[in-house]
Amino acid sequence: MDLTALDVGAPEAFVEGLAPGFKTAGSVQAACDGLASGLYRACVSGPSQERSLVLSRVYLSLPFASLDSGGQEFARGKFGLSPAPGDRFLALMGTQGDDAAWNDRATSSGHRAIPLNRQTVTTVPMLARCFQQIGFDLDIVIGTGGGIHLEGVSRAFGLFHVENAPGSPFIPAQDDFVRPRGVRSVVGCGTMLPDGAVSVWIGFSRHPIRQQAALPLIPMMPGFWHAVQPLYRRRAIFAG
């Protein structure tokens, strides 16, 4: 799959191809890992069919009580919080990248569980930009309930796209990650689940990706969650 020239329907077809594996994955987290790694391997571009993705990650918002123990510890330790069971976090559910350290959630230094509250969803640059571009209703995302929004129509799915990642204020770790790893563009897509949880996939590409080329990604996450929802309903979130 070439992220620089995606055909309409290609991402959905890709997810459908992974669906049999999701049924035997046993957990949402395993399925998310499968998606992250599958995309990492499948996305290639250029004459030499070089891999496009430096890093591929899948996130899901969960209440603190539903995080795995490592995630809860991370949330408490990283942010010095004492979360209530219902406080929402954006949990890292699947990861695959060029570095071995990026292939294990446990070794993620900063993104294993990100607190979702009014401050973070509006000020953490990439998080705020991602949710804003996709069009999520932030009140639903942080669990403060819905309501009438006069600022615009919120969406349950959409695209996240930063064409020029180097120097972009929305992409963190410019010196540690973006420039040294040659990240040119960042793309992502997300969906909101029926219970108000949100899930996003974010890919860091070494090939420049124009917005028009990335648009076919939009239905990928709804398709993924359509396939994974039986696990989610069973609350089979984490392996083991």
């Binding site: 799915f157 969906t191 648009l215 939009i218 709804p222 398709g223 359509h226 929802q229």
Partner: peptide
């Protein structure tokens, strides 16, 4: 659950149509 199933289905269809329209718009 039946209602959620409808939401999943509709969301999948809507997102597909949305993507197609977005591509055409571009």
């Amino acid at each position: 659950v039946a209602l959620e199933d409808q939401i999943w289905d509709q969301q999948a269809r809507l997102s597909k149509a949305y993507a197609e329209l977005s591509v055409r718009n571009e």
